[in-house]
Amino acid sequence: MKTITVQLPDEVEAQLADAAEADGIPVNVAVVQAVQDWIHAQAQRTRERARMRDVLADDPHLRALLGDD
């Protein structure tokens, strides 16, 4: 396991601590979950962009409608 240091504005840290406490989890767990969610969202966006490129490549009419020609 890796330890990292993250600098957060005081208000963000306070909100994080409050939210973690409200969920009954340690701040570290909340941060790990948030990072995992972000990684998942990034991967999803990458897949969606690739799919959109494929759709546009297969449909010249759609490209023209979108002004991508």
Rank of each mutant, 00 (worst) to 15 (best):
K2L: 07
K2Y: 05
K2T: 05
K2C: 01
I4V: 15
I4F: 03
T5A: 02
V6M: 13
L8E: 13
P9H: 06
P9T: 04
D10T: 05
E11V: 08
A14T: 08
Q15W: 07
Q15L: 03
Q15E: 15
L16S: 00
L16Q: 00
A17S: 08
A17Y: 06
A17V: 11
D18T: 02
A20H: 04
A20G: 04
A20W: 00
E21F: 00
D23W: 11
D23C: 05
D23V: 01
P26G: 04
P26E: 15
N28C: 04
N28D: 08
N28A: 11
V29F: 08
V31R: 01
V31A: 07
V31I: 15
V31P: 02
V31N: 09
V32H: 12
Q33N: 10
Q33R: 15
A34C: 07
V35R: 06
Q36N: 15
Q36K: 11
W38T: 00
I39T: 12
I39K: 08
H40N: 13
Q42S: 12
Q42P: 04
R45S: 10
R47K: 13
R47N: 10
R49A: 13
A50G: 09
R51K: 10
M52N: 09
M52H: 04
R53H: 15
R53S: 04
R53C: 01
L56K: 01
A57N: 12
D59P: 12
D59C: 08
P60V: 03
P60S: 13
H61C: 03
L62V: 06
R63L: 00
A64E: 14
L65E: 15
L66Q: 09
G67A: 09
G67F: 01
D68I: 01
D69H: 14
